[in-house]
Design a protein around this nucleic acid. Structure first.
Length: 155
DNA sequence: GCCAACGTTGGC
DNA sequence: GCCAACGTTGGC
């Protein structure tokens, strides 16, 4: 069992949007970065848990916890001309990009802000602190547990 | 809106 | 294969 952090811009897709989905489940499409792709494809497994993090907005923060309910499979939007996430270099016979399915598990309320994380000594090694641009990030078990403890969440 | 950090592209 | 130029991300 591994832990992750998935970034999203809530103006495009938010934690609340995920909660409002049928079965609280959606496909996490549109990852177009090789490092993030490799993590999803090679490391992420069904049953893993992930923080859903809102970027760009103020304040950037972790808003919820989701479960990976389907491991990586081809992101067909990559070979859908005209789609926002179309990649002209993608070969449908050898898909370059993948997506996973995620299901909302529980809100983190109030959200854990980036500011709060940066002020917490135990969380200084988080990828979020050191490479906030990465859109799919591994979270260490002790970091995961520490953040849950900040909101009294037990899973 | 700025800009630092990071990623990608393409000429050589 | 190197690296300069360019593009994107995302916090501030």
């Amino acid at each position: 069992m591994k832990y992750w952090l998935l970034k999203t811009e809530p103006n495009t897709y938010s934690w609340q949007d995920l909660v409002n989905e049928p079965d609280k489940t959606t496909f996490w499409e549109g990852v177009r970065n090789y490092q993030a792709r490799n993590l999803m494809r090679d490391e992420m497994q069904e049953g893993d848990l992930a923080f859903i993090y809102h970027s760009v907005v103020k304040p950037p923060a972790i808003h919820g916890i989701a479960r990976i309910v389907r491991a990586a499979y081809p992101d067909h939007y990559a070979h859908d001309p005209g789609h926002k996430y179309f990649d002209p270099k993608d070969d449908p016979d050898n898909p370059r990009w993948v997506m996973v399915d995620v299901q909302a598990v529980q809100a983190v309320d109030p959200p854990v802000t980036l500011d709060e994380i940066k002020k917490t000594p135990e969380l200084q090694n988080m990828v979020l602190v050191n490479n906030s641009r990465l859109s799919v990030q591994p979270v260490q078990p002790e970091e995961w547990r520490f953040i849950l403890s900040m909101r009294g969440i037990s899973l």
